[in-house]
Amino acid sequence: MSTEYLVLLLVGAAAGGFVNGLAGFGTALFALGFWLNIMPPQQAVAIVLIMSVLSGLQGTYIVRASIAANPGRLLQFLLPALAGVPVGLTLLEHIEAGALKLTIGAFMLLYGVFFIARQSLPLVQGARVYTQVAIGFLGGVLGGAASLSGALPTMWCTLRPWTKGEQRAVLQPFNVIVLTASAVILAAQGAYDRQTLLWIGLALPTTMLAAQLGIMAFRRLSDMQFRRLLVALMLVSGLVLLVGELV
């Protein structure tokens, strides 16, 4: 392994872990920007799934009270998402993942620009159960098709009158469970060979430490600051996706 390879592996691990700890999503979007330069896509995705799940467990723990206070809200997203994962994996056999990522990246970019330009973020009131079920299902589809399970739920959470803990109580366990399902499917397909497990062993300590730093930053944010941060991260994530696919 060259020095450049090791540096990109660890920088990607740190970037993905910190963003996951801070916002509850984004490991893949930020880590893959580095890892796709040094390893094949399937291997990079297999590694980032494990990083996302293990670092996400830390973030899930800190909002356990919010999850327990309203488990039904999470299930509105999660149950349809699990049904959507195999649909996304099936679609992946018929569509080009790069084109899908470009589409989602452009949408995320426009979303971020639009809301950053506004003086205040709009709030969607009411239960909106059917909308949340649909968003959960589509999030599962996107998770299976392009590892973007958190994109639509994150967009929706920024529009809801929820505290940062309530938002994270949806986003963090949603991503952890959906990505775990994806990792299990990849494992069944033989994606975790000896070399991939070695890279995971090297990257994991950096990811976990960076996630803790992100969690420390999360605890210092107000609810409004957290909502605006999510919007800003959508903007950055959109740019990351577009640049990664176009360059």
Score class of each variant (00 low, 15 high):
Y111Q: 00
L198E: 13
F218N: 09
I62F: 13
G214C: 01
F25C: 00
V7F: 14
L230W: 09
L202R: 07
V133N: 10
M234V: 07
S182V: 13
L152G: 00
V231I: 15
G98H: 15
L159R: 08
A169M: 00
A203G: 12
Q119S: 14
L186S: 08
G201I: 01
L209S: 13
V178E: 07
F226E: 01
L74N: 06
Q125E: 14
L235Q: 05
Q172M: 11
L8H: 08
W156D: 08
L78G: 03
A44L: 04
L8C: 02
L121G: 08
P41Y: 11
L82D: 09
L49R: 06
R118Y: 04
H94C: 02
Q195T: 12
L91C: 03
A188R: 13
M155N: 00
L8W: 15
L29Q: 08
N37D: 13
L8P: 05
L22H: 13
T103M: 12
W35K: 02
Q42D: 11
V53S: 03
M224W: 15
A181S: 10
I62R: 15
V231Q: 06
W199R: 06
E245D: 05
G140L: 00
D223Q: 04
V19E: 07
L75N: 11
F174Q: 02
F174C: 00
V141A: 07
A23T: 04
T163N: 04
S182R: 02
P71I: 02
G105I: 03
A69N: 12
I95T: 07
R160K: 11
S55K: 00
F114K: 15
L54D: 09
A68R: 13
Q225E: 15
V170W: 15
A203E: 08
L152A: 11
G105Y: 08
V124D: 05
L142T: 03
Q119H: 15
S2G: 14
A46R: 03
L109R: 02
V129D: 11
L78C: 03
Q195V: 05
I200M: 14
M1F: 06
A13I: 05
A183S: 10
R220A: 03
A151M: 10
A211D: 06
L57P: 05
L152T: 13
T207E: 03
D223T: 04
M39P: 02
L102Q: 10
L78F: 04
L242R: 07
Y192K: 02
G33N: 10
G143V: 06
V113F: 10
R64P: 01
Q58M: 14
T154V: 14
L213S: 14
G143Q: 04
A188N: 14
F226A: 00
L246K: 07
Q125R: 14
Q189E: 14
G17C: 01
T154P: 05
I47C: 11
G112R: 06
K101V: 09
V240S: 12
L92W: 11
E166P: 02
A99Y: 15
I95Q: 04
I185A: 10
V240W: 15
P161I: 06
Q58A: 05
L110S: 08
V236D: 08
A65T: 11
P205K: 11
K164T: 00
Q119E: 12
V240D: 01
Y130G: 15
L121H: 11
E245V: 01
P173K: 10
Q119P: 15
A81R: 09
L49Y: 12
T90D: 09
R168G: 02
P80E: 02
I215Y: 13
L82W: 13
